[in-house]
């Protein structure tokens, strides 16, 4: 049994008296020492899935309508509020895209991490402070014993994101969820942060869920990939086997849409059309309006999850078929 198992997760948004599904029968699992990359464009449901795991979908407008999330043998959806709290930030931690808004600007970064540690572990302030210095040096912040007393605005974007990682790691979580952790950062800084996360994983054995829109980031950092499109997992596999042979036309389209630095192409093979909005009702495969090889079947029937190759699942009626 894996550390985190998400099964048939359903999330819906209520708008104008109707329940609109935003995440539909999403399943995946992550184990220790493993990085799962979730990739997709805005509105595909990848962030909502992460928030659902963290129990941060508290509102009445967005709610989980089905499925199960099992973490370390516990069903997270049936836990009481208190039990959940003790897991969140302790055994499970999350880092967000905007390192500026996730840190409270009026407190020193050290105090913010100390507070987080002391909420979950019995430690004196001095002990916690030592631990923070240790963590800051772990995330490669120069002069950690001085930077403990810095305010967030005194640090650069990359450093702030590292502080966020330090805070997330402060209680040795078993699972780290990173939602677009490097999107707001420059490429050179992005590389440092991603390297850091990979390094920390090998040292601590943390399971990581990395959410990104960038296939490059996913390809370089993940062991497993789930490609999401409009609330469903279009394709999922081990990273190597996924990129070896892309089975879903959306994944192929996404890859062809990306301008690459290593070769010249005259025209990008863009996916036509756009992601349908939540209000638009769809029949059949959600991708059929944009798919070049869609048939009558795609228009009427939602494709079931099928095994394309061993450990490579895909939700498409014609997996692996290149458009004519």
């Amino acid at each position: 049994m894996a550390l985190l198992e998400v099964q048939n997760l359903e999330i819906a948004v209520s708008a104008k008296g109707k329940l609109l599904p935003v995440v539909q029968s999403v399943s995946f699992s992550v184990d220790d020492n493993e990085t799962l990359g979730i990739v997709g464009e805005s509105g595909c449901g990848k962030s909502l899935t992460a928030l659902a795991i963290m129990g941060l979908l508290g509102g009445t407008t967005v709610r989980i309508t089905g499925g199960s999330i099992r973490f370390d043998g516990m069903d997270l959806l049936t836990l009481s509020e208190r039990e959940r709290r003790s897991i969140m930030g302790n055994q499970m931690a999350m880092i967000f895209q905007e390192p500026m808004t996730s840190l409270n600007p009026v407190y020193r970064i050290g105090d913010q991490i100390i507070e987080n540690i002391r909420q979950h572990q019995k430690m004196t302030k001095a002990q916690a402070r030592d631990r923070v210095v240790e963590l800051l040096s772990l995330v490669r912040i120069p002069n950690p014993s001085e930077r403990v007393d810095s305010f967030p605005h005194q640090m650069s974007g990359g450093q702030r994101q590292r502080v966020m990682i330090a805070m997330a790691l402060s209680c040795d979580p078993k699972l780290l969820i990173a939602d677009e952790p490097t999107t707001a950062l420059d490429v050179t800084v992005q590389k440092e942060v991603l390297d850091l996360m990979a390094d920390l994983q090998t040292r601590m054995g943390t399971a990581i869920i990395l959410i990104s829109h960038d296939l490059g980031v996913i390809s370089e950092t993940s062991n497993k990939v789930a490609v999401m499109y409009r609330g469903r997992v279009a394709e999922a596999a081990e990273t190597e086997s996924l990129f070896l042979e892309l089975a879903h036309p959306y994944t192929r389209g996404l890859l062809n849409s990306m301008p690459v630095v290593d070769s010249d192409v005259d025209w990008l093979e863009a996916i036509p059309g756009r992601v349908p909005t939540l209000e638009e009702e769809l029949t059949g495969c959600a991708f059929h309006p944009r798919c070049a090889s869609a048939t009558e079947l795609c228009l009427t029937t939602v494709p079931k999850e099928t095994e394309f190759k061993h450990g490579h699942s895909v939700q498409c009626h014609f997996p692996g078929k290149v458009a004519p």
Partner: peptide, 16 residues
């Protein structure tokens, strides 16, 4: 440094 920092997709051809 910029060019080497860019994360790249290792597609099928390169992996094989």
């Amino acid at each position: 440094k910029l060019l080497s920092s860019i994360p790249r997709v290792k597609t099928g051809r390169e992996l094989v």
